[in-house]
């Protein structure tokens, strides 16, 4: 129960292709964790298995002791790589949707964040730019009070200033018992806020460590070390 997440011997195949291969992993509480790896290494598959959207062929995932299901959906706030929001909905409709759907959704917090980023609640999603849409969805996800936030490529389309705001929001708001797992390719932008990193390669864990030991042992930023490890 001490670990927030325990993944043991997870294997997931898509037909003949193996996406995750006997992967084991633990995530601790109170950490901000970067899930890093080249395209197609299995990051999103792992994330989808944690959220119960994919069923693994072998192995097990426990989130605070429970297998992915109704219970764990209350504990995980998930930002998928693709939007699931209907584009004709207005931001305020989404807010009430989330309030109805999740008992741990903090409406006032979401409103304050939208106001900080000058996003009008009356605008419909389709009228917003790609980056602003991403901001709205990230706000909805971060405004829930949960144990684990899983963000799949959260800041890719967002401008640098808003990216800073979002990272600061993540830093101020997350509680000490919660963890954030985020997959990203924008390592240099986020590495100062990461406690730990997980490098994935071909469906397996290549490395799971804290960011300061990479800097201390290799004299390199996590970004530079990643480029070295995964040099093509």
């Amino acid at each position: 129960m001490n670990n927030l997440v325990t993944v043991s011997h997870l294997t997931k195949k898509y037909g003949h292709k193996t996406a995750l291969s006997d992967l084991s992993l633990t995530l601790n509480r109170g950490r901000i964790i970067g899930l890093l790896g080249p395209n197609g290494c299995g990051k999103s598959t792992l994330i989808k298995c944690m959220n119960g959207l994919l069923v693994p062929n072998k192995g097990e995932i426990l989130i605070e002791g429970s297998k992915p299901g109704i219970e764990t959906k209350k504990k995980i706030s998930y930002l998928p790589e693709r939007s699931y929001c209907q584009s004709n909905m207005q931001v305020r409709e989404l807010l009430s949707y989330f309030s109805d759907f999740y008992e741990n959704f903090l409406l006032e917090k979401a409103r304050a964040m939208l106001a900080d980023l000058d996003i009008d609640e009356k605008s419909s999603l389709k009228s917003l730019s790609k980056g602003t849409k991403e901001k709205v969805q990230l706000i909805l996800v971060m405004a829930r009070d949960v144990s684990l936030y899983i963000l799949d490529e959260p800041i890719a389309g967002v401008d640098p200033a808003a990216r800073d705001y979002i990272l600061k929001t993540i830093l101020t708001d997350y509680s000490e018992n919660a963890s954030i797992l985020m997959s990203t390719h924008l390592i240099s932008d986020i590495e100062a806020i990461l406690d730990d990193v997980i490098f994935m390669k071909e469906g397996q864990i290549l490395l799971s460590t804290d960011t300061e030991s990479i800097r201390a042992e290799h004299g390199k930023s996590v970004d530079a070390y990643f480029r070295e490890v995964f040099a093509c």
Partner: peptide
């Protein structure tokens, strides 16, 4: 710790250390 972590845009655990 939190205020300073915010100001420096670093993880609060790092500031704590």
């Amino acid at each position: 710790v939190r205020e300073l972590a915010m100001e420096a845009s670093v993880n609060p655990n790092t500031m704590q250390k």
